[in-house]
Design a protein around this nucleic acid. Structure first.
Lengths: 341, 341
DNA sequence: TTGTATGCGTTATCAC
DNA sequence: GTGATAACGCATACAA
């Protein structure tokens, strides 16, 4: 018997059944380790299945069982190492638990996010992990309305009762700025991220907390909004320098912003950390590699993904009504002091 | 009528049919824009569908049509910005063409790669994009044997007739090293990547090409193998320094390796580029941001993904026999000179 | 123009 | 233990 000629139809349970001389569902139960099937026939069926190189059709199985063993993942920016690492964590635990992931990239755009979520629903994913754009709550409400298990990652909505796994952004930022204060800095610039994200708002709040704790008055002129890209950090520093703002340290929304800031600072012939200290946030792996190595706040990014995936899997396990909200899990950030402060 | 109570069953064609007072397949053709359905009933059906917030079940559709509109993507290292950007390109064109992607991460391990591919086959993906670990050809052969359309990305097998989209690694490396030569360097260290990958082998070859073109004898002692991580670049430089190898420039397998090299060089109080020039490969976005900005070879990573996805989609369009191999597409690299050379 | 019947590959519910 | 039979939701060949 020639296995799979050109354009060969895929082998199904029916083929095995015919070959083994048993019924189609005996094959099914034999292969799925169900009871009530003699060891003899089970062995026979398994042998035939192996010989024919049988692979179960998960699409058919998904239709029948109303369960696809698939998780939807929609990320705000796949090209950003932060999200890529989160994705890595998600993928790993999903794979370990026998789930596949369908990945979508919203590129921080509400329309793409909405589109992605609708596609995932149509594809009957068992649950969705999402780093929301936060430009609108619509998408999340839609998911809740359709009773699709959902966990927010890295960002969350204060006014929406949806499970989430986040880093303690406020605390992390407080740590970072507190560190600067401890080093004797009082004129600390803050390069903020997109204010529509919970992470940006909370990190800004942490900055204020740290100032307040040190008795340093908060000055709105010391915070500059950026787009969270390194070019944003670069532009912000140039802007601050041009405006004649005096500062000896700069705390950044992210490492990327920090890299841009460092670049602008250096071009202005300022030494780091002697003239100006710089601290980032996220601790992407390049932060440790760059010269000077960037002080920052470590987020366990892979872990974030893993924890979120486990939480979602837990929700999927139980039925709709007993599916109590697991609430918000907050992972502790960690200050990492390197060379830039 | 209350749309979706708690634990509501999903609305199907049958529900629309009942509500609209027509048959189930009239609904199907009305919704799918098929001909032979009066405009009146089509309008009615669409109205009812909208009112019930109907979403087609793509799993059922996939089973019926033997086509899932899904692409499998298996990446060697999701956390690596290079692959993340490739993934971004793939995802974007897939989404544009109405396809979803199931993402798997092989982490450069043969066992995970094999596992991933088998899962994708079971899930009936219409085709697979893969950056092979190249530790074994087994996986690819398996795919060919099963007649699953497949395109290799960024790496390829010289002895296997499989479509691929790659960067011209040999030419890119030749460009990079040629640039170093032109700057007057003759003692050029080469930090090699994992030799089992086609990209590493070809880039090493490009290094030799450039030396030969300049009449500089190749010395095996000038090439040091690394694991392609920045720590590898760091260690390689330390090793070279300790061994007393003399060099005025170092060409690297990747930007990551270059970053590590720069770090080691600086710790040894060597100035860049005055004492030692460094050039990378890939042009990940951080290369431009870092101080000194890294000279490198640009690969159109997103484009790589887009082209590969389009090629795969083209293969999926045609039937198995008329599906001639589209061959190997080679994208031109581009030398980017910044501050490190 | 519309409805009926069948099947995609699988699992589950029943008889035997 | 095992085997018919139905059903998951949809699309299609065919009948009306």
């Amino acid at each position: 018997m020639q296995p799979s000629k050109a354009g060969a139809r895929r082998v199904t349970l029916r083929d095995i059944a015919r070959e083994a001389g048993v019924s189609i569902n005996t094959v099914s139960r034999a292969l799925n380790g169900k009871p009530d099937v003699s060891e003899a026939t089970r062995a026979l069926v398994q042998a035939v299945a192996a010989q024919l190189d049988y692979r179960p059709n998960q699409v058919a199985r998904g239709l029948r069982q109303q369960k696809t063993a698939t998780l939807g993942v929609v990320l705000a920016d796949l090209a950003n190492p932060f999200f890529a690492e989160v994705a890595e964590g998600i993928e790993r635990t999903a794979a370990t638990e026998g789930y596949s992931i369908i990945l979508a990239n919203s590129e921080e755009r509400q329309s793409r996010e909405q589109q992605a979520v609708e596609t995932l629903v149509e594809r009957q994913v068992d649950g969705i992990l999402i780093t929301p754009t936060q430009r609108s709550e619509e998408t999340i409400r839609y998911l809740m309305h359709r009773h699709v298990p959902c966990v927010l990652v890295a960002r969350y909505f204060e006014n929406l009762d949806v499970p989430a796994v986040v880093n303690d952004d406020r605390e992390g930022s407080r740590l970072a700025v507190g560190h600067l204060v401890q080093r004797g800095h009082r004129d600390i610039l803050y390069l903020n991220g997109p204010p529509y994200t919970s992470s940006a708002r909370l990190r800004l709040q942490g900055y204020r907390d740290a100032l307040e704790a040190a008795g340093i008055p908060f000055r709105p002129s010391m915070v500059i909004n950026t787009d969270a890209r390194s070019s944003g950090g670069y532009a912000a520093i140039q802007q601050a320098l041009a405006a004649g703002i005096e500062f000896t340290a700069v705390a950044c929304f992210s490492d990327y912003v920090g890299f841009g800031a460092i670049r602008a600072l250096r071009q202005a012939k300022l030494r780091i950390p002697e003239d100006v200290a710089v601290i980032g946030y996220d601790d992407i792996d390049l932060a440790a590699i760059v010269e000077p190595a960037l002080s920052t706040v470590h987020i366990a990014k892979t872990r974030l993904g893993q924890v979120a995936a486990h939480m979602l899997l837990g929700m999927i396990g139980r039925s709709a009504q007993e599916r109590r909200h697991p609430g918000i899990t907050v992972l502790p950030p960690q200050l990492v002091i390197r060379e830039s402060t």
